[in-house]
Design a protein around this nucleic acid. Structure first.
Length: 429
DNA sequence: TCTGGGGTCCTAGGACCC
DNA sequence: TCTGGGGTCCTAGGACCC
């Protein structure tokens, strides 16, 4: 029966994906214009793997997610600049980019730190590509960040369009897949694994059955897709036919879980050090919990040795929090308690995590069995948040967390740029 | 020597209930 | 030869994303 989606009328409304090019690298380059034209990479936490690459680094064959130690000397020989990640900075710059988008369109969905979907305003619908170029120029002028823009009736198609805009300089960074136009040419050139929503497992599966391009995926029968890939895969194919299945989600929803975890700079053996790390992670998670006005109903701790060396050991424990809470003291107690139940001596731990779950809104009053308010310590934690906020750093924290610790991640290549330094950038209004 | 962190959604299967 | 059926809720695991 082919693809019944094709009989439906394509959505009249256009949406746009804006994608910051090589975002973390672009952020670092704002402060180092001398690095233009040179290979630049940004590393993950603990200087572990490469998470952002300049075009020059991509041209050298450096892969996303590549362990840094494997390419370190190669990059040095090629005169590459290397940065530890500076997420505080990237988030602030991201907020500025999103602000430019907000001023330009009626409706925006912030999809990730470096991407947003926008609804094209009526004024842009007649000539969406020109409109996109103007938006791109505005972002570049006001933030210094280059973006790629894809226009299409559906998110999955807009992703492909933006990718085309990014790869072909002659497009001026903007490409459109418009309703009524033939998309076959572009879709036929896109490997199926490059389609948004098709990961490695599905791509392998599809390729084994001859579905090797976005075009083939689009033209695969619905019943087969639903049987093997579920509704998610089916919707993806429909979106490639120009039918919107993933709507623009403007409202910011509170997160359903909050996790804080780190790999350690060097292996940790002692229960005491692990408890310090877990305490730190509980504090970080708690702060984010309060900032979205939620309470946690459960807390899980996990610890593990290196997954690249045998014998691997990993364990986790989840504890219910009888009364949903946002109190640091309660969270820390739960976390250290959970840790005690899974810790085994004599192992080289390389990672620990705290995950808060069963989140609920803190707006509703939480009462215990006998009507008393039992979210003890909440007010204290909130007061600490305010003090730390005013001080611009963490003023209040457990004494055990002071000082250098082996569990603190490596950050050898940090640029040293701080949020305040954003004000010193010359070219940006 | 050296390999990230933080999320979401979907589905299958078991528990439970009437 | 015989076993109830069907709805709902919950959870774990697997897939995906940046």
């Amino acid at each position: 029966m082919g693809h019944p989606g094709a009989f439906l009328k394509p959505c009249e409304e256009l949406l746009v994906l804006c994608d910051c090019n090589n975002f973390f690298v672009s952020c670092e380059r704002l402060f180092r214009p001398d690095l233009e034209g040179r290979p630049v990479v940004v590393l993950s936490s603990n200087d572990g793997v490469i998470i952002s690459r300049s075009n020059e680094a991509k041209a050298l064959g450096i892969k996303m997610g590549e362990p840094y130690f494997r390419v370190r000397s190669f990059l040095e020989r090629r005169g590459s600049a290397v940065f530890s990640c500076n997420f505080q900075l990237y988030e602030e710059i991201s907020a500025r980019v999103m602000e430019v988008f907000r001023r330009a369109v009626p409706s925006i969905e912030v999809y990730s730190v470096d991407e947003a979907f926008l609804e094209v305003p009526p004024a842009g619908r007649e000539r969406p590509v020109e409109w996109g170029r103007e938006l791109r120029a505005a972002v570049l002028k006001q933030t210094g960040i280059p973006v790629s823009i894809g226009v299409a009736p559906a998110k999955t198609a807009a992703k492909l369009a933006a990718e085309r805009g990014k790869k072909r300089p002659e497009t001026g960074g903007v490409f459109a897949l418009l309703p009524g136009e033939a998309w076959d040419d572009l879709l036929g050139q896109v490997p199926v694994e490059d389609v948004w929503g098709i990961g490695r497992r599905w791509a392998d599966f599809l390729r084994r059955r001859g579905v090797s391009t976005a075009l083939r995926l689009r033209d695969t029968p619905d019943d087969w897709l639903e049987k093997h890939l579920g509704v998610r895969g089916l919707r993806t194919a429909w979106e490639l036919r120009g039918i919107r299945c993933f709507p623009l989600e403007e409202a910011e929803k509170p997160q359903k879980s909050i996790q804080s975890s780190r790999s350690f700079a060097s292996p940790v053996r002692s229960r005491e050090s692990l408890a310090e790390a877990v305490t730190e992670f509980a504090l970080v998670a708690g702060k984010r919990l309060r900032s979205q006005t939620s309470l946690a109903g459960s807390l899980a701790v996990s610890i593990s040795t290196s997954r690249f060396r045998a014998p691997f050991y990993g364990a986790s424990a989840e504890v219910p929090l009888e009364t949903p809470t946002d109190s640091d003291i309660t969270l820390i107690k739960a976390a250290t308690g959970a840790l005690a139940s899974i810790y085994k001596e004599g192992r080289d731990y390389e990672k620990a995590a705290v995950c808060l779950g069963r989140l609920s809104s803190a707006e509703a009053v939480q009462l215990g069995l006998f009507g008393e308010k039992t979210n003890r310590g909440s007010a204290l934690s909130r007061a600490a948040d305010r003090l730390n906020e005013q001080a611009g750093r963490r003023l209040l924290l457990p004494a055990a967390l002071l000082g250098e610790k082996e569990w603190r991640p490596r950050k050898d290549r940090h640029s040293g740029v701080r949020l305040e330094d954003l004000g010193t950038l010359p070219a940006i209004s």
